[in-house]
Design a protein around this nucleic acid. Structure first.
Length: 478
RNA sequence: GGUGUCGUAGCCAAGUGGUAAGGCAGAGCUCUGCAAAAGCUCCACCCCCGGUUCAAAUCCGGGCGACACCUCCA
């Protein structure tokens, strides 16, 4: 049984049912997503992987916001740069968001995020959104004002139940100019935004306009899942107002429950400040890869802290993560090499492996406790390395297989082995190694060490063991 | 001003009433031509003050400090 912290109740609750419908808030494709954004998507991935490992069936959607102020501005800029190239602004919008959308999917792949089942885009669900707007007007909780439609917060008595904001106590107007809004109540939020002909717009009963930000998630969840969902994820900054407004819209518009379990992951910090586009203190995945950081290291780094805790992004933390990844890869390859003997599997080790697998799954089942799960992994690695030491790197095939299966089990959630540099040791490398060992045997240590350096620069580390020397790939090809 | 989260070793980070997981770095040792890898050993009384309790890092109260949300934001 999986227990997950629910923002709604502020306590851990069991996840019920065998088929889980999950919706995760995805990116706005106006730019490259930064590593803080990816924390949220990898968090969704860990959730997805953990549930599957635990035997649940999962249907998981992650949206792409491809129409909002920023993307529209981008589209307008495109048309100004190349007048006449786009048939209309919607075409320009599609042209503007396409590369960022592509980059987003490529980055997910780079980070070995398991494919989600659905990736709905806001622009593809305009009719569904307009349908929701009409439902809300019919129910009397929304009103039109100058071509825009607003949600009347006062009509929802339990508004604020997720974020626990008390709108009465909240100062309004302190942080934004209330005069800019033509709303009955400053707290009301926009469902449908009147957009002049000069902007990206769709036709509606209220005139030309485009959807408000919160609307897409409600409409797409309804369209895709045809009913309430089990889990909804996102970053903590979405709790209010985004998720609060989603709840209001969906519950009022479609009736009944909306989401059982709300999960929110904390922010990634840089120098103790939230990483964000507006603050400018962000790194995209591409930035980091260009700096020689490896995606598996980034993954490990993000998994090393619980999702509900803020983590500070630093070179130091990344180094520590790299050491963890290396240890895993090293053991994996050591296990591969050690599969040599026939005979029965080591019964003690088989038991240890089974225990470790169970413990690993159990730690994750407790609100996705990846740090504890990693502790289990490291304890297991120590036992496995001890065994390999003791057996001089020669194990029965069955035992080596046990080791690999266990690492594979961990990796069903960690997702690191797939990103391991491929060894591909060709004849040239083997020859260098042979030459080095010949020099070593001839006590020509200067030459031996020089060859070791050469191999290191080629991305291979030499491991000298009692049973011979081996090469281990330590770097991804540049 | 309102709301919430957090403060654990040099660093990263679990634990949330029963006497401090795990990792990185460091020190010593084994192995090694040297090194690397691996193993073994060592390395914290949990921001401060007060309270509750047989027992608190863990609960309560009060400080101090950090961050976040209340505006677009993962």
């Amino acid at each position: 049984m999986i227990q997950l912290f629910n923002t709604l109740s502020r306590s851990k609750e069991p996840v019920e049912g065998s088929l889980l419908r999950i919706y995760s808030c995805g990116p706005t494709v106006y730019n490259y997503a930064h590593i803080g954004n990816f924390r949220s998507y990898i968090f969704a991935d860990v959730l997805n992987r953990t549930l599957r490992l635990a035997g649940y069936r999962v249907e998981h959607a992650m949206n792409l916001t491809d129409v909002d102020d920023k993307t529209i501005n981008g589209a307008i800029e495109l048309t100004q740069k190349e007048p006449g190239k786009y048939a209309d602004l919607k075409n320009a919008l599609a042209a503007y968001t396409a590369p960022f959308t592509e980059a987003f999917f490529a980055d997910l792949k780079t980070l070995n995020v398991v494919k989600f089942d659905y990736h709905p885009r806001a622009t593809e669900y305009i009719p569904a959104m307009l349908d929701l707007v009409e439902r809300l007007i019919k129910k009397g909780v929304a009103y039109e004002q100058d071509g825009s439609v607003y949600y009347r917060i006062g009509e929802k008595k339990d508004y604020g139940k997720l974020s626990r904001v008390d709108l009465e106590k909240n100062k309004t107007g302190t942080r934004y100019n209330t005069d800019e809004y033509d709303k009955d109540d400053v707290r009301d939020f926009v469902l449908w935004k009147a957009e002049p002909q000069t902007g990206v717009h769709w036709h509606s009963a209220h005139g030309d306009g485009r959807p408000g930000w919160h609307l897409e998630c409600s409409a797409m969840i309804h369209e895709i899942f045809k009913g309430p969902i089990d889990i909804h994820t996102g970053g903590v900054d979405l709790i209010f107002p985004h998720h609060e407004n989603e709840i209001a819209q969906s519950e009022a518009g479609y009736g009944g429950a909306f989401v059982k379990h709300w999960l929110h992951c904390e922010h990634l910090l840089v120098d103790n400040r939230k990483m964000s586009k507006s603050a400018g203190n962000f790194y995209t995945l591409r930035d980091l890869l260009n700096q020689g950081k490896r995606p598996e290291v980034i993954r490990y780094f993000l998994l090393a802290a619980h999702y509900s805790q803020k983590i500070n992004f630093s070179a130091d933390a990344l180094h520590q993560a790299e050491a963890g990844v290396e240890k895993m890869y090293s053991l994996w390859q050591r296990g591969e090499r050690a599969a040599k003997k026939a005979g029965e599997a080591d019964a003690d080790f088989a038991q240890t492996s089974l225990d470790a697998r169970k413990k690993f799954t159990a730690e994750l089942a407790d609100d996705l406790n990846t740090p504890r799960a990693l502790a289990v992994v490291h304890e297991y690695f120590r036992v496995a390395n001890s065994l390999l030491d003791k057996e001089k790197d020669s194990l029965p095939m069955a035992t080596a297989q046990e080791l690999q299966e266990t690492i594979r089990h961990f990796d069903r959630v960690l997702g690191l082995i797939d990103l391991m540099p491929k060894a591909g040791i060709g004849a040239d490398l083997q020859q260098l190694l042979d030459e080095r060992n010949a020099a070593r045997a001839a006590k020509d240590f200067v030459r031996a060490d020089a060859l070791r350096d050469t191999l290191l620069k080629a991305g291979y580390k030499i491991l000298d063991t009692k049973t011979g020397s081996h090469l281990e790939k330590i770097k991804t090809d540049a």
